[in-house]
Design a protein around this nucleic acid. Structure first.
Lengths: 146, 146
DNA sequence: ATCAATTGCGTTATGCTATAACGTGTGTCA
DNA sequence: TGACACACGTTATAGCATAACGCAATTGAT
């Protein structure tokens, strides 16, 4: 009884743990650490960090969740659900960037082809093969800077 | 006897601990975690993580060291020593990007004005005030990909 | 000179983030 | 039906980072 169960909307059918973790992230308006997620899910039977990390690994693989490296935290992908970050198949077609407000915690996800292009140009000339690119801007959002 | 001592070449005179930490990083050809630095410096009297973290905080502030967020590790700034990343005064004039080889650990530091420009344009239109920007490309360097 | 403020330092303890290693149950399919 | 893959649960441990205390030295204003 541990196999993936079809879910109403999401792309690859998620297992119970995966849905629980995703829902918590999706409902949050700020990034969450694995341990915070764990605490939110104690009532649903979660007892250990690995339960969270294993679900997160899959969700990251599916492109449904992003990891914010500068925060050691996770957010649900902001793109509605179409052509996000290279869902099922492989490499994806673009790198996502994040603007993280250090005051309210809000995160904006965006994409810029030109930035992508410049970075992969650099890689080409250096013969570097990119696997994953991280772009994170920390600062103050419009509301908090005012 | 804990005050900064003039050092041969570096910019703001470093204290003993700061020089020790910087030298270890500068001699390394791969990023090092704070705890690895600590181990390298046991023979020089280092006993606790805080001794390393406090030195790193200052070196980061001076712009002599960078933190790699996706690795939880640190590298000496690659720019020779002139007009690096906004040394003493303040904001610096540019964001530095890193290409990190996941095979050999080598890190290339570079800078791209156009990328900078695109990102700060985005920030302007969103009224976001950037404080610090992280750009890290993980993959395989030319030598390792061959 | 001297006192207050600042900064660096050392130590102990603690907290947060992440993974290793083990075993169980279940669905797939040759 | 037996090998395999995968999700899961649990315990233990590894790795990264900071809080809170107190002392020593330097600076600089009075």
């Amino acid at each position: 009884m541990n196999a993936p169960v079809s879910t109403p909307i999401s792309a690859p059918a998620l297992t119970k743990n995966q849905s629980l973790v995703f829902d918590v992230l999706d409902r949050s308006d700020a990034p969450m650490s694995a341990y915070t997620i764990l605490d939110r899910l104690r009532d649903h039977g979660f007892r250990a960090p690995l339960q969270v990390y294993r679900a997160l690994d899959k969700l990251l693989e599916f492109g449904m969740v992003h990891r914010l490296e500068s925060l050691n935290a996770f957010v649900a992908c902001a793109h509605p659900e179409s052509e996000c970050c290279g869902k099922g198949h492989g490499h994806g077609h673009g790198t996502v960037a994040f603007a993280i407000c250090e005051s309210c915690g809000h995160v904006s996800e965006f994409h810029d082809h030109e930035v992508d292009h410049r970075l992969s140009d650099w890689a080409k000339t250096k013969n570097f093969k990119p696997a994953k690119t991280t772009i994170e801007i920390r600062g103050l959002c419009g509301a908090c800077a005012a």
